[in-house]
Every structure is written in structure tokens, then in C-alpha cells.
Write a protein that binds this DNA or RNA. Sequence first.
DNA 1: ATGATAATGATAATTATTATCATTATAAGG
DNA 2: CCTTATAATGATAATAATTATCATTATCAT
Lengths: 144, 144
Amino acid sequence: MAFEEERKIFSSFIRNKNLRHSEQRQQIMDVFLKTERHLSAEELYDIVREKNPSIGYATIYRTLKLLSEAGLCRELQADGRITRYEHLHNRDHHDHLVCTECGKMVEFEIPEIEALQEKIARKNGFVLKNHRWELYGLCSDCTR
Amino acid sequence: MAFEEERKIFSSFIRNKNLRHSEQRQQIMDVFLKTERHLSAEELYDIVREKNPSIGYATIYRTLKLLSEAGLCRELQADGRITRYEHLHNRDHHDHLVCTECGKMVEFEIPEIEALQEKIARKNGFVLKNHRWELYGLCSDCTR
DNA sequence: ATGATAATGATAATTATTATCATTATAAGG
DNA sequence: CCTTATAATGATAATAATTATCATTATCAT
Ligand SMILES: [Mn+2]
Ligand SMILES: [Mn+2]
Ligand SMILES: [Zn+2]
Ligand SMILES: [Zn+2]
């Protein structure tokens, strides 16, 4: 089984916080880790319930929050009001191109931008914590 | 009374769409135009109701939508799930620094970024429509 | 094995926004 | 000015995503 490193990270996170392991958390993490997409809570819920139909919505949200705190997951507000979740472990920071028609998300990475952002923040007296940079448009499939 | 140009734009927008003028729309537009802030619908509602306590929430939302369609207003998802609205007429495009503690928003403008974004979009087969670039951190008031 | 307490799932609550609909206001034409 | 078609309004219900509540169950240190 893959994702040994992630499993270990989550496990020590749980232990350090005096939380407990559970079957449901394992199942949710497994599905999250093996799915290479920008998942919504609902999408994750649907996939997890194929294996364990008794799992509750709240547990999905609770586990996603834990995964985020553990540094394995990144929440992102794609566009409207729904939150999507993606892998964070061992990944370089990246931003997103989003198709407003079909929802396709393409990742991109511009290292120079990081320094620029720091400069802008400093100039305005801010201590930068994070950022969001999203480009919206039509993907090649949706332009014709 | 100021904002003659904006008034004219809104007026022709209304006419061209075969809509009608109303006292409420005027009042809402007036407050919106004279308020130099990134307003939420609720904040706008509260201010407008000081002048006209009988105005309804739905009319605030409806009018903000019209102002946006007319090109006078820009909707922005500051951070969480609430939409904020700002002036758009005769303004250069800008992005925002947001204090995660007190909500303060500082505007900034980096002309070079526009070309860069076009390049990124084109490289990925996208036709760019708009973008969102937000830097989150602590403002100078909130760092100590 | 036991007991303290964390986790779960069902469901209610919350929040921002949109839809519905009966009533009122606008404005074009006579 | 009056009439009339219909757009606009305000109250309120509905929606959608997420979070809170709480009785029941599961975990794990002892
Ligand atoms: Mn991504
Ligand atoms: Mn602004
Ligand atoms: Zn597309
Ligand atoms: Zn601040």
C-alpha cells in the first residue's frame, strides 16, 4: 500500500493531539490520497460511501479539516461558494487556471511571483501568510 | 450632485434593457457610489435603510447585480463565503491585500502581471476572461 | 476488562444568496 | 390626465454548503 509517508504523518498528528484513530478516518484518508483531483466534500463523500455506505457527511468534513491541519491537504475556494481539497504533501506551491464552462482546473507554477508578492506585502506593512491566484477563462475544449 | 457619468451609464443601461427606474434603485446606487469601501450586501443594506427603512434585502441584491452588469460594480469574493462589491467605473484593474485579522483591504496594481497571465493562459490553451489575485496576511495594526 | 472520553452519524442550525408571489409603481399611449 | 401592460418591490420561503448539537458507540491507556 502506498502513501506510507502520509499515513505516518497523519498518525503522529493524531497521536500528538491526543485524538484517536478510527476506521472511518482511515477510509476517508485512503480515498483522498489515491484520488488525484481537486475534490469537493460532496465528491469525496460519494466515493467513500461506495466502500462504506454508513459514513456520515460530518465525518467527511471533520476528516478533511484534520488532514488540512496535518499539512496533507489544502483547501481552495475554486470559484463560487464551494470548497475544494487537494494534496499538499511534497508538492511545490502552485496556482490554478479554471475553466468557467466545464470546471477544468490546470495547475501552474511561477516561482518569480513568490518574491514579488513578498515585496508587495512588505511595501504595505503586511506580513504575508498565504495567497490565492486564480485565472478564469475557457479551456480549449470549451472555446468551440 | 456628483457621479453624473455613472448615473448616465446606469440610466441608459436601464433603458436599453427595457427596465424601469425606481426610487429604491436610485437610493441604493447613491449609497453605493458615495461609499468608498469594499461593501458587503449586508453593509450596504444597513446604510441604505438609514435613509429608507422600508427597503428590502432582495432589492439590494437585485440592484447590485444590475450595477455589475452595467459595468459600475465589481463583485469580489474577499475570502470566505461572503461577496463584496466595489466601484469599477474609470478604475484600473487592481488586486488586493487582505488582513486576515481585521479584514482591512489594501489595493495594489502590478501592470506586468497582466501580460504574464495572458502568457500562462495561452500556453495552456485557455482564453483568459478574468482573474483573482489575493494576498492574505497581517496588516501593520495587527502584527503587534 | 474497564472507564474516561474521543468519534460518529443523524439531524438541526446557520449563513449568504436566490426564488416565489401577491401587491405596487412606472411609463408609454391615447 | 387616465388607462393599462408589465416591471419592481418586499416579505418570506427555498437553497446550498458548512458547522453545531447530542445521544450512542468506539478507542485505548491503564
Ligand atoms: Mn492544484
Ligand atoms: Mn478594490
Ligand atoms: Zn472547459
Ligand atoms: Zn489588520
